[in-house]
C-alpha cells in the first residue's frame, strides 16, 4: 500500500542540558509510533542520519549564548515551517540567563583558566528574541504529555491545547492540600505557568517556578507574602531569579529585591 509522505521533524540544540530533547526519547511507549507518523529528519542526539530540510516542525531546545548560535537560529528558522521552542532555556534563557545579571568577565574567570579561549555572549536569551516562534512549550524540563500534545497538534494542523493558567489552578484541580496555607511553605504556584500537574506540592514542597510566569501573574503580591512568611529580600530575589530569571515578570520582580 502506498504510504503517505511523513512530515519531517527536526530537533535542534542550543545552550541547554539536553533534558528537553531527552523527553522525546523518554516517550518509550510512543516513540516507535512517533517515528512512524513523523520522519525524524534531523535529531543529532538520536541519529547519525541527516535527511535535510525544509522541515514541517522544528523543536528547538536551548538558549542563545554565542554569536555563532545567534546566526545558526536564523538558518534553522529559514528551513522550518513551524518552529516550537521546548523548555525554559529556549523560552526564557534558562538557568544560564543568571549571567545577564552578573559581571560576565568575572564569571569567565571563575570557571576558565584561559577566558580568551572562550567565545560567549554576555547574555543568555530566548529564541523568540532572535526569530519568530510559532509556539513556546514551557518547563524545566518540558512535560512529556504536553510534548505529545504539541506534536499531535502540528501533525493535524491545529493549535496545541496547552493551558496558560497557573500551577495553583492545577493544584486545586488535583485536590492537593495547599502547602502555603497548610504548612507555611513559600510556593511559586500562584504566579507559575501550568504544565507539570502541580508536582512539587504533591510532594509537600513549594513550587519553585520551573515553568516560568503564568499569564498576568501578580508577582508583587506573592513577593509581599513571602516576606511576611519570613523570606529574606535575597531569598525572594532567588525565588524569581532561578530557571526563568530572564522571563519578563520574573525578571522584574527579582530585580526589585536586593541581596
Amino acid at each position: 500500500m502506498p504510504r503517505k509522505r511523513r512530515p519531517k521533524l527536526a530537533v535542534w540544540k542550543f545552550a541547554s542540558c539536553d533534558g528537553c530533547q531527552l523527553t522525546l526519547l523518554d516517550c518509550e511507549d510512543e516513540l516507535l509510533a512517533i517515528a512512524d507518523a513523523l520522519q525524524i529528519a534531523y535529531f543529532r542526539e538520536a541519529t547519525s542520519a541527516d535527511v535535510g530540510g525544509p522541515y514541517e516542525v522544528s523543536l528547538v531546545e536551548g538558549s542563545i549564548t554565542t554569536a555563532d548560535d545567534a546566526e545558526r537560529i536564523r538558518r534553522v528558522r529559514a528551513v522550518s515551517r513551524s518552529l516550537v521552542t521546548i523548555g525554559a532555556c529556549a523560552t526564557a534563557g534558562g538557568i544560564q540567563a543568571l549571567r545577564n545579571f552578573r559581571d560576565h568577565a568575572e564569571m569567565l574567570r571563575v570557571v576558565y583558566a584561559r577566558p580568551d579561549y572562550i567565545d560567549s555572549l554576555t547574555t543568555s536569551t530566548a529564541i523568540a528574541e532572535h526569530v519568530p516562534v510559532d509556539f513556546e512549550l514551557r518547563g524545566c524540563p518540558i512535560d512529556k504529555r504536553q510534548l505529545l500534545e504539541v506534536l499531535s497538534a502540528y501533525l493535524h494542523g491545529r493549535r496545541p491545547a496547552i493551558a496558560s493558567h497557573s500551577t495553583c489552578v492545577e493544584c486545586k484541580m488535583r485536590g492537593t492540600v495547599c502547602v502555603m496555607v497548610a504548612h507555611g511553605t513559600p510556593c511559586m504556584g500562584p504566579v507559575t505557568h501550568a504544565g507539570c500537574g502541580a508536582l512539587c506540592p504533591s510532594y509537600i514542597r513549594g513550587c519553585y517556578g520551573c515553568y516560568g510566569p503564568a499569564e498576568a501573574p501578580n508577582t508583587a503580591a506573592l513577593a509581599r507574602g513571602f516576606v511576611q512568611m519570613g523570606v529574606s529580600e535575597g531569598g525572594v530575589r532567588r525565588y524569581f531569579h532561578t530557571f526563568n530569571a530572564n522571563a519578563g515578570p520574573f525578571r522584574q520582580e527579582g530585580l526589585s529585591h536586593g541581596d
Binding site: G19, R99, R102
Partner: peptide
C-alpha cells in the same frame, strides 16, 4: 556553549545546589 555553573552558584543558597546543578545534565 559554556553555561558557567560554578560561577552562577556563588551567592545561591546551599539548599539550591541539588536543583541548580541537576540542570547541568538532563
Amino acid at each position: 556553549p559554556p553555561r558557567f555553573f560554578e560561577a552562577l552558584l556563588r551567592g545561591r543558597a546551599q539548599l539550591e545546589a541539588p536543583d541548580i546543578t541537576s540542570r547541568i545534565c538532563g
